[in-house]
Design a protein around this nucleic acid. Structure first.
Lengths: 269, 269
DNA sequence: GCTGGGGCCTCCCGTAACGGGAGAGTCAAG
DNA sequence: CTTGACTCTCCCGTTACGGGAGGCCCCAGC
C-alpha cells in the first residue's frame, strides 16, 4: 500500500490528478483511512493507472477513458479519434502556412497591411447586371440606378438585411478601367428578369477575404496580396472574385474611410 | 450603425462572442444606448473585427490579440507561435502513429493486451550486480542476497522511496534462460564497490513502457509487442531495456498477480 | 389600442482537467 | 516534544464563450 505521494511518483502522475481521478470515480484508491481520510493505493492499481496514462497519450478525454475502461465505449470511438486527429493535423498545417506567411511578409520589410480571413459565404438570391464600365465612379452610379429599376419592376422583392451588394469580377486580372463587371445585390427572393438585369442564385463559396480601407484605385494592392497569400497557403483560386461594398460615397465623405471587402473563392490546391 | 445581430451576420461572428469582446474590452461597440443598453456598431468597426478573426485563425489567444492590436505584443510572439505550432504538429503526428497502431492491432484480431506509455525516467544512483543466471527464479533469489550484502558493507546507504529495482537486460533478444543480467537497486547515494557489485549512475532516459501482469515466462509477449510498437510509431530502440519489478513472489502468492514493467529506451527514428 | 413575435438586455451556470493556495490535521524522525 | 514533510478538504481560477432564464424594446398586423 502506497500513500498518494509515493503512488504519484511510481505512476509519474501528479497528486492533484490522482485526487481528481478519485473524485470522478475513474481510479479510486483501494482503501481510504476512515479517520484521517488518507488515500492508500495498492501496487496492482499501477496497472490501471498505466492504462489511463496510455489512453491519455492517445488524446482521449477522461470521460472517454472511463467508458473504455468500463467496456462501455462505442465501437467507433477509435476511428472517430483518428478522424479527429486527421482534422487537427490539417488545421495545424493550415495555421503553419499562415504563420510562416506572416513571418515572410515581415521579413520582406512590408508592414502586414492586410489580414486574411477564410470564411464561408452562404448562397443567396441576387439580381445581377453585367456591364462594361469605364471606371469605379461609373459603377457606383450604376448600382442605385439598377436598384431603383428592379424595385419598380418587382414590388414584392426587397433587399435582405443586412445588405450584401457585390461586384463579381470577370476580368482575369486586376484592372480599374474598362472593366467587365457584374453588379449583384442580395434580395429576398427571385422576380422577373428585366431590361439589363436578371435574377440568379449565387452559390455558397469558401473565400479568402481581406478588408480594404481607402479609395478604389488602391484595391490593386489588396488583390496582389490575396493572390500571393492564396499561393503560399496551399490553396488555389476557385472562381470569380467579388468585391463587397461596405462603406463608400453613399455614407462616407472621405475616400480614406471607404471600406471594401475583396473575396477570393478558394479550394485546396 | 448596426445592431448586434446585423453586425454579427456581417462579420460572421456570434452575438455571444461580440458581447464577450465588449465585456473584456477587445471590441467595444461605437455607441451604447443609455436607456436600453442596446449595442450599436459602426460599419468601420468591421475592419477591427476582421483583424480579430484573422488573428484568431492564426491560433492566437484573445489576450494575445488584445496585445497585438494595442501594439503591446512582445516581438517574439509570432515566432513563439510558430514554435508552438511545430510542437503541436509533432504531437499530432505522434498520436496519429499510436492510434493507427491501435487500429492495426485490432484489425489483426488481437486483443490489445498492452497499453504503451512514453515517459521519462529520471537518472538515479544504483548499486548493480551483473551476473549470468539460469532463470528468473535464480535472479529473484539474487536480489535480496546482494541487497543484504550491500547494506552490511555500506551502513550509510539506504534504498530510495518509492523503491526502484530493475534488471537491465544486456541480451540482444528476449530469453528467459541463461541470461546476462544486471540487477540494479536505486539507493540514496554512492558507496564503496564491493565483492560482485558496484555503484553506478543510471542516466535519465525516455522509454516506451508496458506493464506486464502475470508470470515471467510470458514476458516475451510484452517484448514482442514493444519492439513492434517502437517500429510502427516512428521511434528506434536507443539502449538496453529494463525490467522494473513491482509485484512478485515477495508480496503476491499467485504468479498471475505479479506486475513487471518493461521499459524500452527510445529516440526519434 | 392591443397583441404577438423577434431581437436585445443582464445575470448566472457550465465547460475539461486539473493547478494554486489556505487552513488544518497526520506521521515519522530527531 | 518539536519539526518538517506529507496529507486532507474546500474554494477559486483557468478559455472563450454557449445555454438558458427572466425581462425589456420595437415593429407589424389586426
Amino acid at each position: 500500500m502506497y500513500r498518494i505521494g509515493e503512488f504519484s511518483k511510481l505512476g509519474r502522475v501528479t497528486v492533484k490528478a490522482l485526487r481528481y481521478y478519485d473524485e470522478i470515480g475513474l481510479l479510486k484508491p483501494s482503501s481510504v483511512d476512515e479517520w484521517t481520510g488518507y488515500r492508500y493505493y495498492a501496487s496492482s492499481q499501477l496497472y490501471q493507472l498505466h492504462e489511463i496514462v496510455a489512453l491519455k497519450q492517445l488524446g482521449f478525454s477522461i470521460e472517454q477513458i472511463s467508458a473504455i475502461l468500463a467496456d462501455a465505449a462505442p465501437a467507433s470511438l477509435v476511428a472517430d479519434r483518428l478522424a479527429e486527429l486527421e482534422a487537427q493535423q490539417r488545421s495545424v498545417i493550415d495555421q503553419l502556412f499562415r504563420v510562416r506567411h506572416y513571418l515572410k511578409i515581415k521579413e520582406e520589410g512590408y508592414e502586414m497591411e492586410y489580414k486574411v480571413v477564410v470564411k464561408e459565404i452562404p448562397g443567396c438570391t441576387v439580381f445581377s447586371a453585367r456591364r462594361k464600365v469605364a471606371d469605379y465612379t461609373e459603377m457606383m452610379s450604376l448600382i442605385p440606378a439598377v436598384g431603383a429599376q428592379v424595385a419598380a419592376d418587382n414590388p414584392g422583392v426587397g433587399c435582405v438585411e443586412p445588405e450584401y451588394c457585390c461586384n463579381v469580377c470577370h476580368d482575369t486580372e486586376y484592372r480599374d478601367q474598362d472593366m467587365d463587371i457584374e453588379i449583384c445585390q442580395a434580395v429576398t427572393g427571385p422576380g422577373q428578369d428585366g431590361d439589363g438585369y436578371e435574377f440568379k442564385q449565387l452559390p455558397p463559396v469558401t473565400v479568402a477575404s481581406v478588408l480594404h480601407r481607402g479609395p478604389y484605385e488602391d484595391l490593386g494592392a489588396a488583390y496582389a496580396y490575396l493572390v500571393d497569400w492564396v499561393e503560399t497557403n496551399g490553396y488555389r483560386i476557385a472562381g470569380d472574385w467579388r468585391e463587397a461594398f461596405i462603406d463608400g460615397v453613399w455614407n462616407k465623405d472621405s475616400a480614406q474611410d471607404w471600406l471594401t471587402e475583396v473575396q477570393m473563392p478558394i479550394a485546396a490546391a
